[in-house]
């Protein structure tokens, strides 16, 4: 609950990160001359804020662009246009991450970290856990030698591993332990912002609960903001302050966690939430079944991207992309029906 108190005092100040109209396109090339024949519009005009010490979750199905958003902000993939403005201090100067040169970017990366779904794939199998974590400390000139070793030991203990783990190799650890190593490495530089890209998706529930608790504890302790990218709605509901729902490269609805679950407005959000199986056999509710699959992001449908699967689409939805309608100061949905009704679309 401490995070909630923090927000109200900081609400007058700037959020930690403001993303505006982010577009990331991947060119499609064909033929001998590698002619540019089109673009995969993985992210097509996405805007959101991440508050200080808050968790914003991006949810959506495979191919909706949520992972690309996280990677574009960290510039692990080059964004096509838009801005991502970071306010390292609440009253301090702003930094547009997309305008930084490579050496400035490297310095700024101290504040920005990422935890991946499969930590094994992101850990070098040939170097010890201690060196993997200590490397970043040396590169950024934070600590060397014994001082670095002490820091690494403290980090490992903080994430629930033994300090001796520093001398071992990634393959010697279980999935949950490797994820703790990934977290320790992300924490090493004392970042302000961490992208958690499906960070707990590969873990069994009992282990997942351990890691989710750890992420929450660290958030309070280190003053972290998370962009939590996940497809598991129940984890998202538990961990987030705010949630943005993505479909085919665009955000269709943004709301506080409570509002999203109590009053989902967009037909896609409603269908998505109703599709989640609930662990209560007496609650075998009627689901909203969507027809078909997500269309290809190379040639997304005209108008509202969701209209091909939307059970309540009208003529206008096929031609015109809906602008976000505000249902409350903290709740927006991009749907013509929501705009017309001034309330949730009914499914």
């Amino acid at each position: 609950m401490s995070t909630k108190v923090q927000t109200s005092t900081a609400s007058a100040a700037k959020p930690l990160l403001e993303v505006r109209d982010l577009k990331t396109y991947f060119p499609v090339r064909r033929g001998l001359l590698q002619r540019h024949v089109g673009d995969v519009k993985a992210v097509d005009g996405v805007s959101f804020d991440v508050g200080r010490q808050q968790t914003l979750s991006l949810v959506g199905e495979s191919g909706c662009g949520k992972t690309t958003v996280g990677r574009s902000i960290l510039r692990l993939v080059p964004p096509t246009s838009g801005s991502a403005v970071l306010y390292p201090e609440a009253q301090g100067p702003a930094v547009d991450l997309f305008q930084l040169g490579s050496s400035e970017l490297r310095r700024q990366r101290r504040d920005l970290q990422i935890i991946f779904q499969d930590p094994f794939a992101s850990l070098n199998p040939r170097i010890t856990v201690g060196s993997a974590i200590g490397e970043a400390l040396a590169v950024h000139g934070i600590a060397k030698g014994d001082a670095a070793q002490d820091l690494v030991a403290a980090l490992l203990e903080r994430v629930g591993l033994r300090a001796a783990a520093a001398n071992r190799y990634p393959h010697e650890f279980s999935g949950g332990q490797r994820q703790r190593i990934g977290i320790a490495r992300a924490l090493a530089l004392r970042p302000k912002f961490i992208v958690c890209d499906e960070a707990v998706s590969a873990l069994d529930v009992s282990i997942q609960a351990q890691v989710v608790n750890l992420l929450k504890d660290l958030q309070g302790e280190f003053g972290l903001s998370y962009l939590f990218i996940a497809h598991d709605i129940s984890v998202v509901k538990y961990i987030s302050d705010r949630i943005a729902v993505m479909y085919l490269g665009r955000i269709v609805e943004t709301a506080s966690t409570i509002e999203l679950f109590e009053r989902p407005a967009h037909p896609y959000t409603q269908a998505l939430l109703s599709a989640v199986p609930h662990p209560d056999p007496k609650l075998r509710k009627k689901r909203i079944l969507l027809q078909g699959d997500v269309p290809s992001p190379i040639s997304p449908p005209t108008g509202c991207h969701f209209h091909t699967r939307c059970p309540v689409a009208v003529a206008r939805c096929r031609t015109e992309y809906p602008a976000p309608t505000s249902l409350s100061p903290s709740h927006q949905a991009a749907c013509h029906l929501v705009e017309e009704r001034g309330g949730p679309a009914i499914l």
Binding site: E61, S274, A275, V276, P277, R287, L289, L290
Partner: peptide, 10 residues
């Protein structure tokens, strides 16, 4: 994905 999962379980 969950919406596809719902289809398959049904």
């Amino acid at each position: 994905d969950v919406t596809i999962q719902a289809q398959i379980l049904d």
